[in-house]
Design a protein around this nucleic acid. Structure first.
Lengths: 159, 159
DNA sequence: TATTGTTATACTCTATAACTATA
DNA sequence: TATAGTTATAGAGTATAACAATA
């Protein structure tokens, strides 16, 4: 029971790149997750470039849409962004007219984030691209396998 | 058949952070992959800090170990690093005595990468941390599920 | 005194252009 | 002229420290 699934021979002085032994990396979940994430992000930029959405702004819009009034601190810890870095993005989104900040009446330190109609339209348009985009990224898997992958990822993450 | 699995009510002015509606993000593979990758990288830095290994240098060592003589260009495209960025890392690894560069005899433009004995010892020590590290990262999944996850990732990626 | 949001800033990672030497 | 490797440099993403306003 030899485990040689790559074709043998062809291992001369200079490596022809497709005859490399990559089995150790293929068994390394962290490395494969990095490749998967790169694939999704590169595909995202292609698919959503026309709308000007990035993976970060897409997630920000979705969370504010589903949780109007969410404060920046919650948003940052949820999306795993440092608060100062999120603030920079929020500043751009607000000055572009996509979101709006309200001071909370009960605690005037706190900020409540809301989508403007312009922001609501943007994430609505973006949401219509989401399904075909995900389908393209996961095309190598059956629909059952796609659900399994998503389920396993949810199980191994806190959120 | 309400799909309300989060507890209702409790949605007052300021969001208490754990009552947020995150279902859209949980159904977004790209976002979940990003969280998973962050978890693995943060855990990696903790586990391998004593050896001075990063995710990038770990992968570089593994590929050179299994493919002595591999050229920088193949290594870069394989690991999804731009060649100039890889070169900087290789310069540090070489000046620290972990790898060595040979000029190819058949094509004197080409470089062949090899581990020094010091580099071979480093990745050998690192490899012994790999299994417990992966087990910790994937602790929420059964071993069968861990194999399924790795299999699905391999199926959806070229490599 | 502690917390929320914010600014300023430094550091790492990543991307592009241009150069050297070999072919 | 084309290719492999390299350098220099700019940009994006991410990190920490310090401050203002409010509790």
């Amino acid at each position: 029971m030899s485990s040689r699934t790559t074709r043998p021979g062809a291992k001369s002085a200079s490596q022809p790149e497709n005859s490399l032994d990559l089995r150790a990396l293929q068994r390394t979940p962290g490395f494969m997750l990095r490749l998967a994430q790169l694939k999704f992000f590169e595909g995202f930029y292609e698919e959503f470039a026309a709308l000007g959405l990035t993976p970060a702004t897409y997630a920000i819009f979705v969370v504010i849409r589903d949780n109007p009034g969410v404060p920046p601190s919650s948003l940052a810890s949820l999306l795993r962004l440092r608060l100062p870095n999120l603030i920079k993005i929020l500043n751009e989104l607000e000055s572009s007219g996509f979101i709006k900040r309200n001071r909370s009446k009960s605690d005037r330190r706190a900020v409540e984030l809301m989508l403007t109609p312009k922001g609501a339209k943007l994430i609505h348009d973006g949401a219509s691209l989401t399904e075909p985009y995900n389908r393209k990224m996961l095309a190598a898997l059956t629909e059952a396998e796609q659900r399994t992958l998503l389920d396993l990822l949810n199980r191994m993450l806190p959120l």
